[in-house]
């Protein structure tokens, strides 16, 4: 029988989702698509992030951000959503906590909206289809900047 340690480790680096003290970064995922939500959860969990909560529209996102603050490290925010869109939600979150770390998730063809959200205080953006590497790179970049 082989112990885990008998296999050479191909990926010796620490998981992205852990801070230097070993506790996980806490992420909230805001998206109205169950598919995108699930994709993001899988990507973050694979690097040991803690998915603290999810929201399906902007209103819910703002409410939950306030509820979890200051216990939330990073938010991924879809742009097109029912009730309240991601840009309005971003504005309200930044109004409440000017240091909030929000990454916009955008479909292609929405450059104007992405630009607008960056001006409003979003820290970065990711264009769909989601690429695991890009999601992780940009999140880590925002968290460690």
């Amino acid at each position: 029988m082989k112990a885990k340690s008998d296999f050479p480790s191909l990926n010796p680096k620490e998981p992205d989702g852990l801070k230097s003290d070993g506790t996980p970064y806490k992420v909230m995922i805001v998206d109205d698509s169950m598919f995108v939500k699930k994709q993001l959860i899988q990507i973050f969990q694979s690097e040991q992030y803690e998915v603290l909560d999810t929201a399906g529209d902007g209103e819910e996102a703002v409410e939950k951000y306030k509820e979890h603050h200051p216990n939330i490290d990073i938010v991924t925010m879809d742009i097109t959503m029912p009730k309240m869109d991601g840009i309005t939600a971003l504005e309200k979150i930044i109004e409440f906590d000017k240091n909030a770390k929000v990454i916009m998730i955008s479909a292609l063809g929405k450059q104007e909206l992405v630009k607008k959200s960056l001006l409003l205080g979003a820290k970065n953006y990711i264009v769909k289809p989601l690429d695991r590497k890009k999601v992780l790179e940009r999140s880590l970049n925002v968290l460690t900047r």
Binding site: S33, F35, V36, A107, L108, G109, K110, K128, P129
Partner: peptide, 10 residues
């Protein structure tokens, strides 16, 4: 639906 979004958005 997301597939439709991605294809048309692009």
């Amino acid at each position: 639906t997301e597939l439709g979004n991605m294809i048309t958005g692009n």
